[in-house]
Amino acid sequence: MSEARANILARLRAAPQVQPPERPYWQAPSFNDRLDRFRMMIEAVHGEVHVVTEQTWRPHLRKILAEKNVARVLAAPHLGIDWDDVVAYDAPVEDFKDQLVSGIDACVTTTRGAIAETGSLVVVPDVDEPRLASLLPPIHVALLKADDIADNLAQIIEAQGWAAAMPTNLLLISGPSKTADIEQTLAYGVHGPKELIVLVLQ
């Protein structure tokens, strides 16, 4: 291995050893009504929440897409979306880039759960729903099962056993893309979606 590596590690090992301190107690918050908290938090950062059911979400989605004048939607085929112009992200990004960057109005993705405390969606990209699906189109619609909302991050890391099997990419998404770099004034959609719509399936 490199000389730099050996030198750095040698210097660190030569330094005085101290006993690693224990982690003191701190309990992350929990909530009586997790959906309520999730909704409040994500709405506060410009996210939209619609509570739907397994039966109603497809027509509801259709209504939303129509209202927002969406033409082309990116979604995995297995979702069975009811829309005329649906494309699947089924080619390597190199071949799909142009379409992705400017040819799609909205995407629909699943989630692996959510965090009530901070109003965050847990999104794990995979073969059907690649990493950029939730990022490049101007509208991101996320499907979330109400039962999958955890109280806080620590809880969901533990409950879903993340540490044992980290996916290539795991994302927490809390609202649409935003910036406050110009005079602390909030502006949405600087690089990613301008709108984030969560369909909560109850």
């Binding site: 938090m41 950062v45 992200y89 089924d90 080619a91 390597p92 990004v93 799909f96 405390e117 901070t118 109003g119 965050s120 990209p125 995979d126 073969v127 690649p130 990493r131 950029l132 980290m166 996916p167 290539t168 990419n169 795991l170 994302l171 927490l172 998404i173 809390s174 609202g175 649409p176 893309s177 935003k178 406050a180 990613g192």
Partner: peptide, 23 residues
Amino acid sequence: TGQAITTYVNMITSPRKSGEQDG
């Protein structure tokens, strides 16, 4: 910045795996 959390928390564990479309 006084935000409860940032919009994105991006955990990267590996490059594109075979079968994946991006990354």
